[in-house]
Design a protein around this nucleic acid. Structure first.
Length: 200
DNA sequence: GAGATGATTAGCT
DNA sequence: GCTAATCATCTCC
């Protein structure tokens, strides 16, 4: 059921971002299973992408995770508050990653509501990258974790979304990246209530 | 060792 | 729509 290690070794990060729409992401943190299917992603394509942490081939203690072989997680803190979950792809030495911006919950909804301090299942439970990480219990302890582990993984359950229901557009929150901020590296399910920002 | 800043979100107007 | 919250990380000194 889990996507094989080889799935993540594809070097076409943008195509993988599109393919991940409709795949199921699960975590099992402290024995509590939570997950759902992915409805929004963004591609970050390594040293030529100004919006990526790894732009220009920069290596730091934080970004070295992105240089690992595809099939591991990259989790980091932004704005001092929000943790973001990325999937590292491509081969060792190529710092490509895919940010998971939103999922549609299918398992462990009660657990996710507790983590998000909600008493009713509002759509914003897993809307936006910071929310997804919090709902799934993802923290920096999960950084560099293999997606073949029993802590965090992605499954193909046969759900595929036709191109007519998947849109592409510019990425969110990367205005500083100049012309690269306009690249259509963001993919999302049209009209899905869990998708953040523009949704048409 | 100090200073600037960000792949954001929630809450108020 | 606007803005505060909040800190690890990076960049110099």
């Amino acid at each position: 059921m889990k996507l094989p290690e080889s799935y993540y070794h594809n070097t076409d990060t943008v195509a993988l971002s599109r393919d991940l729409i409709g795949k199921y992401l699960f975590t099992c943190i402290d024995g509590e299973l939570t997950g759902g299917y992915i409805v929004e992603t963004e591609a970050y394509t390594g040293i030529n992408d100004k919006a990526a942490h790894s732009y220009g081939g920069k290596v730091t203690p934080r970004t070295q995770t992105m240089y690992m072989q595809g099939g591991v997680s990259y989790v980091y803190l932004c704005y001092g508050i929000h943790e973001m979950f990325n999937i590292v792809v491509a081969e060792e030495g190529q710092p490509h990653a895919i940010l998971i911006r939103a999922i549609q919950p299918t398992d462990g909804l009660d657990v996710m509501m507790r983590r998000r301090n909600l008493d009713t299942p509002k759509p914003n439970i897993t809307k936006g990258p910071g929310s997804v990480a919090k709902a799934l219990g993802i923290s920096r302890k999960i950084n560099a974790m293999s997606l073949q582990s029993d802590i965090i993984w992605v499954e193909d359950r046969g759900l595929t979304l036709p191109d007519a229901e998947v849109a592409a557009g510019p990425r969110i929150g990367v205005d500083y990246a100049g012309e690269d901020a306009l690249l259509p590296y963001r993919f999302y399910v049209k009209g899905n209530i869990y998708v953040s920002k523009p949704n048409k």
